[in-house]
C-alpha cells in the first residue's frame, strides 16, 4: 500500500491530512468496526485506536492517495491483532478448500439457493443485517468491503493481504452462505422453495 516512502509533514499539515483525508471516512470506519465486532462500544474503541495509529504513522501515508483503503487496513489489522486474539478462537475455515471449489467445475452446479427477488424485497426488517452478521468474520469482511464500501478487488487484496484470486473465491463463498441464510428467512416468511 502507500507505506513505502516516508513523508515529512509539519504539525499543521498533519492536522490537515487528519481532518481532510482521514476524518471524512469516520462513518465507513465506524460501520466496519461495528460489523466486525458486532458491539458498538468495541467498534468505538477500535475506530479510536485506528485513528490514533493513523496519526502516529501519518508519515507513512502519502497525501492524496487512497486514505480510505489505508485506514481500513489499519482497522482490520487492529481487529485481528488486538481484538480478535482476546475474544475469539482462530478461524476454522479451510480457505484452500474454498479456493479449490471456486476454481472447479462444480462451481456452477448449485447455482444459487432457492431465493427470489420478491422474497428479498419483502425483507423489510433486520433480515439482511442479521444474515450478514451471522457469517464467519472473514466472509463477513469481504462482503463489507465489496458490497457495502465498494472497494475494488485489488484494493481488497491490499487491505486483507491476500491474492486477488483469494478475494474472488472468498467473496463467492461468502455470498453463497449469505444466500443460504436469506433463503432460511424467506422460508420462514412463507416463501416456498423454488429452484431456479
Amino acid at each position: 500500500m502507500e507505506e513505502v516512502h516516508r513523508q515529512t509533514y509539519g504539525e499543521k499539515e498533519k492536522n490537515e491530512i487528519f481532518n481532510n483525508e482521514f476524518l471524512p471516512h469516520i462513518h465507513s470506519m465506524y460501520n466496519f468496526g461495528y460489523r466486525l465486532t458486532l458491539d458498538r462500544d468495541d467498534a468505538k474503541d477500535l475506530v479510536q485506536d485506528t485513528y490514533m495509529k493513523a496519526y502516529r504513522f501519518i508519515e507513512s501515508f502519502q497525501k492524496g492517495t487512497n486514505a480510505k483503503a489505508w485506514l481500513f487496513r489499519i482497522l482490520k489489522n487492529s481487529f485481528i491483532n488486538d481484538y480478535r486474539k482476546k475474544s475469539k478462537e482462530p478461524s476454522k475455515v479451510d480457505y484452500q478448500e474454498v479456493e479449490t471449489y471456486y476454481n472447479s467445475e462444480d462451481v456452477d452446479r448449485q447455482i444459487t439457493p432457492d431465493l427470489r427477488v420478491e422474497a428479498l424485497k419483502d425483507m423489510i426488517g433486520d433480515e439482511i443485517s442479521n444474515a450478514l452478521n451471522s457469517l464467519e468474520v472473514d466472509f463477513r469482511t469481504v462482503i463489507i468491503l465489496c458490497d457495502l464500501e465498494g472497494f475494488k478487488y485489488d484494493e481488497m487484496a491490499k487491505i486483507l493481504d491476500i491474492p486477488i484470486g483469494t478475494v474472488r473465491s472468498r467473496l463467492h463463498r461468502a455470498r453463497n452462505l449469505l444466500k443460504e441464510k436469506l433463503s432460511e428467512y424467506a422460508q420462514q416468511m412463507g416463501y416456498k422453495n423454488t429452484k431456479l
Binding site: 460489523r35 439482511i128 450478514l132
Partner: peptide, 12 residues
C-alpha cells in the same frame, strides 16, 4: 442483495 446490503447495513 448487493443493493439491499448497501441500504440496510450502512446506517449505523
Amino acid at each position: 442483495i448487493k443493493e439491499m446490503l448497501r441500504i440496510k447495513c450502512r446506517g449505523d
